[in-house]
């Protein structure tokens, strides 16, 4: 009985020892891994220079309505009367009739500013992030339309489902305190 008791104590000592090693390990590892501390939190964002507006953003997001929307950098926009991002390539007439619009959901609001300039704004509640306008704006216009992950909608998946499907590696993890990669600002376009 004594010997089995001794063995029991020995085993417990061993276990205690290992446990302490593990605790130190956990402390050390978390310390080292966090100490690099570039940021407290990451979120996903699209590099507009890499994005080819392939359309995956509209369909691959885990949310029913994609968290990716089109944005407009107004200071880059030409305010064209004939916006290639707004009108269908072969419009019947240059008015805001749905059949003349490129956007499948009519999410682009066209407002007259002064002759011959029009302002183009995205109605985010309608935009599905398909990137059609982005593609045409970039190809024939100034590229002031581009896609961005909207963080009021994005749930910040640990692995963004669109990032995994993006053909141009345009998605990247960015620090949460600078969550946008806007054109015409520090990253400039």
């Amino acid at each position: 009985m004594v010997s089995s008791n001794q063995e029991f104590t020995r085993r417990r000592l061993l276990k205690d020892g290992f446990r302490n090693v593990c605790i130190l390990g956990i402390g050390g590892a978390s310390g080292i891994l966090m100490a690099r501390g570039q940021t407290d939190q990451y979120c996903w964002q699209i590099d507009p220079q890499k994005c080819i507006a392939c359309g995956n953003c509209a369909t691959f997001c885990v949310l029913e309505e994609s968290a990716v929307k089109c944005v407009q950098t107004y200071a880059m926009c030409g305010y064209c009367k004939l916006c290639t991002g707004f009108f269908d390539p072969a419009p019947n007439a240059l008015n805001t009739g749905a059949e003349n619009q490129l956007c499948p959901t009519g999410a682009i609001i066209r407002t007259f500013v002064e002759d011959p300039y029009y302002e183009y704004t995205i109605d985010e509640s309608l935009c599905i992030g398909c990137g059609k306008c982005v593609k045409w704006c970039k190809a024939f216009g100034n590229g002031s339309f581009y896609l961005q992950v909207r963080h009021d909608r994005c749930v910040n998946c640990n692995q963004c489902a669109i990032a995994a499907a993006c053909p141009s590696e345009a998605f990247q993890r960015v620090p949460a305190d600078q969550p946008y990669l806007l054109k015409g600002t520090n990253h400039s376009g």
């Binding site: 220079q49 890499k50 080819i52 507006a53 944005v71 407009q72 950098t73 107004y74 200071a75 880059m76 926009c77 030409g78 305010y79 064209c80 500013v113 002064e114 300039y117 302002e119 704004t121 593609k135 970039k138 190809a139 024939f140 216009g141 100034n142 590229g143 002031s144 141009s168 806007l182 054109k183 376009g189």
Partner: peptide
């Protein structure tokens, strides 16, 4: 669709006092 954007149509100088909204 790739590469740098080209400023094909420079943003206008508005006479009506319109200011660029911020994204």
């Amino acid at each position: 669709c790739l590469g740098q954007d080209i400023q094909r149509f420079p943003p206008p100088d508005f006479e009506s006092g319109y200011e660029f909204p911020v994204t």
